[in-house]
Design a protein around this nucleic acid. Structure first.
Lengths: 344, 344
DNA sequence: TGCTCGACCGACATCGTTGTCGGCGGCAAT
DNA sequence: ATTGCCGCCGACAACGATGTCGGTCGAGCA
């Protein structure tokens, strides 16, 4: 392991930095004007075959690469979009990133990614930093705080699309999963299995997805004529301790729970690891799918989102707007899918 | 499912792109020269308190944001680095990305990410595209093909660091896991448990990590005086079918295998899902850790890498070089960790 | 008083590219 | 022969920032 931190040095030593070739160099070598080089590089018309070949030869010889900063400055476009997620190492979000990347590549665009850690200040700073780089568009998984500061950018024509959660204080294109419907379906699946007492462990209602999924859970109960009972509903930040306490409480009430719905991946993980969960024999359905969920000691039935579809939809929206697609802010809702996994 | 949200877009079509404020505008409003605005924006000295305040007021009023393309053009630096991975949605690689991002943020630098899909043409195109954007540095998880085309960039002073696998046809800073040592440790763990006949399922030797890990497996066997037998070693592209066949073959030889070492995550997953694996009762150690590996029907003992440390080391190397750190190409090797998980 | 010095500030050139425009030569229509 | 048009091409300005350099002003010093 190498870890020598050394003083920054005022240049010098190995500074044999070779200057890069510019269009001027290429033009000189090919014996043409720089505008002609530009035309060749950008595939414009009105260049004779002969000069095109000559220019291409010079480009290859000098290993010329167009300076995108200069082009961006001149054109006001950067062939670049930005993606702000909460944490790129989280599987759902990296899948979104992958899909965005794929669409961007098709459009000849490069992607900036940045993780906000759900810190609004950081998110804001990163967003503005991306904008100062003149990204052509922005996709944001917003932290749950006001995004009004983006209004001027949007009216200035910058396409901004929100994914996974809607923005607060701003009306903009948004791509969401069908959180409510998914939670309803998952809960209904437990009801169909005969359960009448179903506990719920999820995010606080201040989180958009938390509120929506709780609503879906209540929808399913209502549909089945089962009264909603806050005594078996536990909302808060995910932790093994909280899940453990929730399970204990859900089993200790007047009519003990026989099943459990966990509302998001972190709460699901915490619950799976809670010591008393395995003993509890609670039937279980979770929101969000996992790699290996089929290979757990008891395979996990889940309501799965499609992060790839979400990323793709968001990216397409950005590029549609970039092409001038007019119209009011759109809201795209993506379906979820119940994946039933039975005992092994 | 697309529906519309209430308010229309503030600017009819989007044609009404409002021009962004430039330093010229700020200078005019503040009644100073543009160079003074530049000084304020960049925190240079030799600006009186009064003018600084006036300029800052004008900046706020006009919502001025420095155009990074212009600055980059002028300065030859972009405060931007690029990361090329094989697939950003793969957990190990997104963890690397997260760590790189963290270091970059500390350095006031933004991160481009791009997935090569292990396609050398794509990787090359993406790399050159990043270079044309004048990234200040590059981190690459290289596809197993020649990277000699990067030599001119490196001699031109662009810091390039390779992660996870060494580049081919190029000498450059590289950060690797201790693949050989890790595989040796993992295999030794099985030997200590009494196994003398251990099958190996891994990547082909053409993949660097595949070759190294196979070597580590052989090291452990040699240390224990167990002969290496190709009949229980299966190298190739991961698939459930291949794992299934491998298990059948390993059990069907003269002396059947009693344990299995899987050499990378994809082969591990394929093997876990192979129908006859569960029945086989093979003791099992895998290279690469997973979320949920502790909650499988049989908890999985693994040799874990530290992707976060890898990303951090690679990023630090880039910034060290950027600060002018001289010297020959370095190779950093990160330790692995055996995580023993016993029956539940 | 005269001179130096340093803090403060702005005009100007410059980075590398692309949009504008005008020149040139050849060809078809008049 | 003249006109007009079109394809090809290059000079030049502009994009928005920063480095250079020189100017102004007040303080300090002999």
């Amino acid at each position: 392991m190498v870890d020598q931190v050394r003083e920054p040095r005022a240049d010098g030593a190995q500074s044999a930095r070779v200057a890069r070739a510019t269009m001027k160099d290429v033009a000189a070598l090919a014996g043409v004007g720089i505008k002609t080089v530009s035309r060749v590089v950008n595939g414009e018309r009105h260049v004779s075959e002969d000069t095109r070949v000559a220019v291409e030869r010079a480009i290859a010889q000098l290993r010329f690469q167009r300076n995108a900063s200069a082009a961006s400055l001149r054109q006001g476009q950067s062939a670049t979009i930005g993606l702000i997620v909460e944490d790129i190492s989280e599987p759902t979000q990296s899948s979104i990133a992958r899909a965005v990347e794929r669409v961007a590549l098709d459009e000849g665009t490069l992607l900036f990614t940045a993780s906000s850690s759900d810190d609004p200040d950081r998110e804001r700073a990163m967003t503005l930093s991306l904008i100062s780089r003149r990204v052509d568009g922005l996709i944001v998984i917003p932290s749950p705080f006001d995004h009004g500061f983006l209004q001027p950018e949007m009216t200035a024509g910058l396409p901004i699309v929100f994914a996974d959660r809607p923005p607060i204080g701003l009306t903009a294109d948004t791509v969401l999963a069908d959180n409510r419907g998914g939670a309803q379906t998952g809960t209904a699946h437990l009801i169909e299995a005969g359960h009448r007492r179903i506990a719920f462990i999820g995010d606080p209602e201040s989180v958009h997805t938390g509120a929506e999924r709780l609503a879906g859970y209540r929808d399913a109960l209502a549909d089945a004529g089962i009264p909603y009972d806050p005594k078996v509903v536990f909302l808060g930040a995910p932790s093994i301790e909280r899940s453990e306490a929730a399970i204990a409480a859900a089993l200790d009430v007047d009519v003990p729970a026989t099943a459990l719905f966990t509302g998001n991946s972190l709460n699901t993980l915490a619950t799976l690891r809670a010591p008393s969960f395995e003993r509890s024999a609670l039937d279980h359905v979770a929101f969000d799918d996992f790699e290996l969920a089929d290979l757990l000691w008891r395979p996990l039935t889940v309501v799965a989102q499609d992060p790839s579809a979400m990323g793709e939809a968001a990216a397409r929206l950005v590029f549609d707007r970039l092409r001038g697609e007019p119209g009011a802010a759109r809201r795209v809702t993506l379906p979820t899918r119940l994946i039933v996994r039975n005992h092994r």
